[in-house]
Design a protein around this nucleic acid. Structure first.
Lengths: 202, 202
DNA sequence: ACCTGAACACCGTTCAAGT
DNA sequence: ACCTGAACACCGTTCAAGT
């Protein structure tokens, strides 16, 4: 559902879009760029000076999370669109932000291999958490609902007693607290890298 | 590129596929099921008895990673296909494996909220790491190559000095070591949950 | 400079017809 | 039971033509 429908939404006859964008791929890439650009207007990342790399990574993480939650349907594009280079990792896949990330860490004691390793660990963390949180918010469907068959014996979950018993807990949303705990833990894991002792053997 | 092309590959005239599968969505779901089913034949997960929940989670993680690396092009489907229930999280999205996961943890001291929290943390970890590692292996394109313009002054990376300086390190592959380190760290983070002291306030 | 309308190639799907 | 071929609805894209 695109191009012709999008044209209809814009009140234009759809093929007029080719005057502005070369094709559909470019349109999707433009959406990704637009999402990442929202970071530039995030108050968290502009307002005050930064207090060390941990403060920077924390604010950046919450900024990216805010983008993902504002656009849960579009956010998967950030992960699925082929990046400009193989070493640009979603969701931090714009050269602008990778530059800021690496420079911030370099200025604070990370040597080159350590800064690169931190980038990889940080992107892995963000992608896993935000993709799943966005999916939870953007889901249109809710089959296999827990509230079915409350005390029946035969059902879809009949042969999965643990799942059935924990279904209520599994459906619960502690996304923010868990995001912050995992982030805290990641920062702690990166701490040794901030004093030039690169863990890699190169 | 599907249905008609797939038919051609199978030597059949393509519309014959409707005798076997209701539609394209079901075909993609079947691919996802096939990938997850490979876990059932993983030696790591069958051979010997398990030594505690950490051993189990470690072997399961490496099993899922092996699937992702065997099928880097197909693995993103595991993340993008809508799951059967909103609380089933990629990549551990089959009821069978969620059941095994929850039962293994429940048997070893995790109370119900703790087991559910561990499932969420574990899936976030796996998804982030494996999606990015699979993307690195399945990439068909490699534009913006680093080896271009080795000492030119104007170029795509001219305004990104840190990226340019670290490009070599960013392109380097320490996937296995970083996967194991992050996994080790996650297990350490889950350890307090294994003694019934649920961290959530419910 | 910007939009329209018809046309083309391609896809997923349906269905009457074959064997 | 399984496959084929034509057909339909829909999509991305192109292009000659409008204003």
């Amino acid at each position: 559902m695109t191009k012709r429908k999008l044209g209809a939404i814009l009140g234009v006859e759809a093929m007029a879009l080719y005057r502005h964008l070369p094709g559909k791929e470019d349109l999707l890439d433009a959406v990704v760029d637009a999402l990442l650009s929202e970071l530039d207007q995030d108050e968290r990342l502009l307002r005050e000076p930064e207090f060390g790399w941990q403060d920077f990574l924390q604010r950046l993480a919450h900024g990216v999370r805010a983008v993902a939650l504002r656009h849960p349907k579009a956010f998967p594009l950030v992960a699925s669109r082929p990046p400009e280079a193989p070493w640009l990792r979603p969701p931090l896949r714009s050269l602008t932000w990778v530059e800021r990330f690496l420079q911030a860490l370099s200025e604070e004691g990370f040597d080159d291999p350590a800064a690169a390793a931190a980038y990889r660990a940080y992107t892995s963390f963000l992608l896993g958490h935000l993709l799943l949180e966005a999916a939870a918010h953007g889901a249109d469907i809710t089959p296999l609902d827990v509230r079915e068959e409350p005390e029946e014996s035969g059902g879809a979950l009949a042969s999965f007693p643990a799942v059935r018993r924990l279904a209520h807990h599994l459906a619960q949303d502690h996304a923010l607290a868990e995001f912050e705990e995992a982030l805290e833990d990641l920062l702690e894991r990166l701490r040794p890298l901030s004093r030039g002792t690169s863990a890699t053997g190169e």
